[in-house]
Design a protein around this nucleic acid. Structure first.
Length: 616
RNA sequence: CGGAGCGUAGCGCAGCCUGGUAGCGCGCUUGGUUUGGGACCAAGAUGUCGGAGGUUCGAAUCCUCUCGCUCCGACCA
């Protein structure tokens, strides 16, 4: 279709039958820069036959979750190593959409973009103490001079170093710096494609304030920006209270995209707005001490009974009447934790209660040493280690517990009379049906994918790294920090987890790699070809991101690919509709089909794109 | 790091137990017929069977080591 180049500098163009300029590089129509005579249309105008969008009919063997499978099948990503991916053109477009939304909202919230290096010198990490603390997740390497480096898994050190070297006065604060950058965390077990990779794109922002009030304000701004971001992405999400974990700091919220396949459990109140990560969700201490008369302690042989379920059967007691004794090592010190049989221990809560930096379940040797008995038969009687108990335990009478010797449990055991507890606390996971601490409503469970996390850090890093400012009185103070992350790739993956069906992905308009797919059903039919090309041009002129499927494939194959790649609006240009002067539009999400008159199709499609973006 | 499993054509897999010609489906190439929901016919191309060593006349197959990958667990923003 393209003519012969004339050889002059300007002649990257030629003419086609429609009298439109054709770029000789990409063979697309129009979209050429009139000054440079170079095609600049790569972002808005695309022909499938010239594009790079290799789809797969079958699911790859190593993809377990839907988002991973579909991203592989739709040619969005390609695995390079465990947890390390190339972003192929179609996938990258969606990544860029998320980045752009994030960038706009961060800028609007007053944050300023910068870019920090992936390779970090060890000195900065030694200064904060995390070189030793971070563990194997930190990918370390040496340069040719044998100097230690690591790949940045997060950038508190680097950004604090930047700020401390330039910020001297309270007049220069507050400031909030962010970047969108590739991180590396050498995860023990990367999985689920982009959901938990080792290398991943993250937006991380860091706020610096002179006082607590300012820091809270910065935090609040970010909280609001995050809400705007996830709303604009068209995702169903919840903001939940979270445990601040290893990063430290005083409070934090997670942003969870709700999806059945989520790795995290979100507890939310059915009656009010309260939502929390299961690690954090408060369990209200309530109940009445049982008035059952105390029985005598009785030894029962419970051969081979290791689990609460086994013991419950053998003792003929409800799991609620059994208390399990779990031995944990808190910074290498053994501690016993009592939990009612039908409850689950919450390790984050006990870790916080003890102020331990490392907490793990005791191994069989440690259990034997602390209790004198084997795993599965631990009990509180006669224990020399501190005993912490969940609140629920204090309301029980005549409980069943382990006997600290093989195949023995005890019945009719009672608090105070038979054993003492060092301290009662909320130590279990919240469950469906528990009471909300704010309004008394009921908890319910949902699953979520953590796509954002905001922390109020305080002075943890500024203190360690001496990032100070002079206040109005000329006195040096530690800068108060906050940090705010968003997993970009994970947000794309989460969107797919939340929006797909058996046929493929269903993009929300704001994240869709293209907004409209024009399916030129039979490219050999002149009328079809011309109508499709014209629509394509018109959509382009209207600023719509459009992919023209001009491949000479069978209709079935093209429809299947269209469903798989999930572009929100699919226009079919075929001989059948053209006879009536109509085009068929299918809404990928609802499957709803409607006919559009040829002349006004582009305008109507543009309106639908615009209103979808506006969230109407 | 503990447990399980898998590496054979671009993708999905069979063959291995019981050693002897490397195979199937999809995809790809060429020609023809087809064209509104993954077409059909014909002809093709594609493999150091993850790597190294060993046993054997002979190894995809048996043995040892090694590398990579996946899943469960532990761990983790």
């Amino acid at each position: 279709m393209a003519g012969t180049p004339c050889g002059s500098v300007a002649c990257f163009w030629s003419e086609n039958p429609y009298n439109l300029p054709v770029c000789l590089w990409c063979r697309g129509l129009g979209g050429t820069d009139p000054l440079l005579f170079l095609c600049i249309q790569d972002t808005k105008l695309m022909r499938y036959s010239q594009y790079f969008l290799p789809t797969l009919k079958e699911n790859p063997a190593d993809a377990e979750v839907v988002s991973h499978q579909l991203m592989m099948r739709a040619g969005m990503i390609r695995k390079v190593a465990a947890g390390v991916y190339s972003y192929l053109p179609f996938g990258l477009r969606s990544i860029r959409k998320v980045e752009q939304i994030v960038r706009e909202e961060m800028n609007r919230a007053g944050a300023i973009e910068l870019l920090m290096p992936m390779a970090n010198p060890a000195e900065l990490w030694q200064e904060s103490g995390r070189w030793d603390y971070y563990g194997k997740e930190l990918l370390r390497f040496k340069d040719r001079h044998q100097r230690d480096f690591c790949m940045g898994p997060t950038h508190e050190e680097v950004v604090t170093d930047v700020v401390r070297s330039f910020v001297k006065s309270y007049r220069q604060l507050p400031v909030n710096l962010y970047q969108i950058q590739t991180k590396f965390r050498d995860e023990v077990r990367p999985r689920f494609g982009l959901m938990r990779g080792r290398e991943f794109i993250m937006k991380d922002a860091y706020s610096f304030d002179t006082n607590d009030e300012g820091a809270n304000e910065s935090y609040e701004k970010m909280r609001q920006a995050y809400c705007h971001i996830f709303e604009r992405c068209g995702l169903k999400y919840r903001m939940v209270e979270a445990d601040s974990g290893a990063i430290g700091g005083s409070f934090s919220h997670e942003f969870m995209v709700l999806a059945a396949t989520g790795e995290d459990v979100v507890i939310s109140c059915e009656s009010c707005e309260y939502s929390a990560n299961i690690e954090k969700a408060v369990v209200v201490d309530q109940g009445e001490v049982s008035q059952e008369p105390m029985r005598e302690v009785e030894r029962v042989v419970t051969e081979g009974a290791h689990t609460v379920a086994d013991v419950s059967l053998m003792l003929n007691l409800d799991p609620q009447q059994i208390v399990k004794t779990m031995l944990v090592m808190a910074d290498d010190q053994p501690v016993a934790v009592l939990i009612r049989g039908d409850h689950e221990l919450n390790e984050a809560k006990i870790k916080n209660l003890l102020g331990a930096s490392v907490l793990e379940l005791a191994n069989p040797e440690q259990i034997a040493e602390a209790t004198g008995g084997p795993v599965g038969f631990s009990g509180p009687l006669g224990l020399k280690v501190p005993i912490y108990a969940d609140n629920a335990v204090k309301y029980l009478r005549n409980i069943g517990v382990g006997g600290n010797e093989k195949d023995i449990h005890l019945e009719g055991v009672n608090l105070e009379r038979d054993f003492q507890v060092t301290q009662f606390a909320d130590l279990r996971n919240a469950m469906e049906g528990d009471r909300c601490p704010h309004c008394g409503g009921q908890y319910s469970n949902t699953r979520g994918i953590e796509v954002g996390h905001i922390f109020k850090l305080g002075t943890k890093y500024s203190e360690a790294m001496k990032a100070t400012f002079l206040d109005a009185d000329g006195k040096a103070n530690d800068i108060i920090m906050g940090c705010y992350g968003i997993g970009i790739g994970r947000t794309v993956a989460a969107s797919i987890e939340q929006n797909h069906d058996d046929d493929g992905m269903i993009w929300p308009m704001p994240l869709a790699p293209f907004q409209v797919l024009v399916n030129m059903l039979n490219p050999k039919d002149d009328a079809v070809r011309e109508a499709a090309e014209n629509l394509y041009r018109a959509l382009l002129d209207a600023g719509v991101e459009v992919l023209l499927d001009d491949r000479d494939e069978r209709p079935g194959a093209k429809f299947k690919d269209a469903d798989l790649i999930g572009i929100p609006l699919n226009v079919t240009v075929g001989a059948r509709g053209l006879k009536e002067g109509q085009l068929e539009v299918k809404d990928r999400a609802t499957g709803e089909k409607s006919m559009l008159p040829l002349e006004s199709a582009a305008t109507m499609l543009q309106e639908r794109v615009t209103s979808a973006l506006a969230g109407v």
